[in-house]
Structures are given as structure tokens and as C-alpha cells.
Design a protein around this nucleic acid. Structure first.
Lengths: 83, 83
DNA sequence: AGATATTTGTTCGTATGTATC
DNA sequence: GGATACATACGAACAAATATC
């Protein structure tokens, strides 16, 4: 169980944890924890879990997201090789 | 057409209807209405229909679910007779 | 064997409403 | 008013197992 601080929003605190897991290698390149997994593990609503994912993607550029599939550790892959 | 109330979420209102059908015998032990059937009959999204099923299963224990097959009225059958 | 339809499981995208701070 | 956080609800897409033809 995570101890929430009062000086930062929960989605930022979760982002810190996930970021640590990524940079430490605990989350190797590949499938990241899903929004649902975040909700379960941290006991937050989906909105909150989503904000974490968006933050990691839009601001930190540590992950990318494939709609309906999930988020992945690493940079957005190039889409070359298609007509 | 169902008249939605404002004091309860739709998935709970649907659950009440289904529960009534089960206890009244309108839905005898056996195959329950599918998520798709729920969507059609009540005009709701699949998420909403699913919440009803999960509620009836996890909280009410009135039904059980066989993945890729459907949900069934009654208690979870024992799995004996297997190696 | 193969194609198709059905059904549950899972995922992300989006929007709304309520409440709190 | 704005940011945070909860719950609800719509939509869409992909996967996998099962059943049917």
C-alpha cells in the first residue's frame, strides 16, 4: 500500500514510482502495466491511472501507447515499411 | 424500454431486473443472457452490461461464468473428475 | 479442414457528473 | 474558478476459446 503525500497529486506520485521501475530495468522495454493494473495496484480511479500514463508519455516520453493494446516502455517505433 | 432512475447506476438497475428473473424462475438454471443480449435489450454499452454480470457473479453469487461460453444461473460447478 | 459467428476477456479513448480542496 | 479524484457510461478494437456450418 502506497502512502500518499499531500504535496503532490496522486497521479504524479504514481508516475514517480513507474518511472523508477522503468529506469531501474524492473520494467524492461515491452508491455507496461495497464491502466487497469494501475488502478488495482494503487487503488485509484481510472482517471487518475490514466493521468499517470499520459504524463509518462506526453511529458516524460518514456513510453508510447497503442490504442486498444496497451502502453510500452521505450520510444515510439517508426512506422516505415508501409505503403 | 426501461425507465432509468437517477439514484442508482444503470448496471445496478439492470442487475435488479436480472436477479428478479432468476429468483422468479424466468431464468432457470442454465445459460444466462449474454453481454450482447443485455446490450440489446437494455440499450447500454458493453462495459455497463459487463458490470451487471460481474456484480451478479462476484457480489451476489447468483451466476457463474465460463469464459468464451457465457454465464449460467446457479452455483459454480465442482471441477472434480479431473486428473 | 476451413470459414464464420458467438462470447467473454482485456485494452485504450472520450465524456459527463459529483465532490472536495 | 481550477485542479484533483471518484464513479459512471458511451465507443472501439484486439485476442482467444467455443460452436456451428
Amino acid at each position: 500500500m502506497i502512502e500518499w503525500r499531500d504535496d503532490l497529486p496522486r497521479w504524479r506520485q504514481i508516475a514517480t514510482v513507474i518511472q523508477r521501475r522503468i529506469t531501474s530495468g524492473e520494467y524492461p522495454p515491452g508491455r507496461l502495466i495497464s491502466e487497469n493494473g494501475l488502478m488495482q495496484e494503487f487503488g485509484v480511479a481510472r482517471n487518475t491511472a490514466r493521468k499517470t500514463i499520459v504524463w509518462l508519455r506526453e511529458e516524460k516520453a518514456l513510453i508510447y501507447t497503442r490504442p486498444n493494446l496497451g502502453s510500452f516502455v521505450g520510444p515510439e517505433p517508426e512506422d516505415d515499411g508501409e505503403e
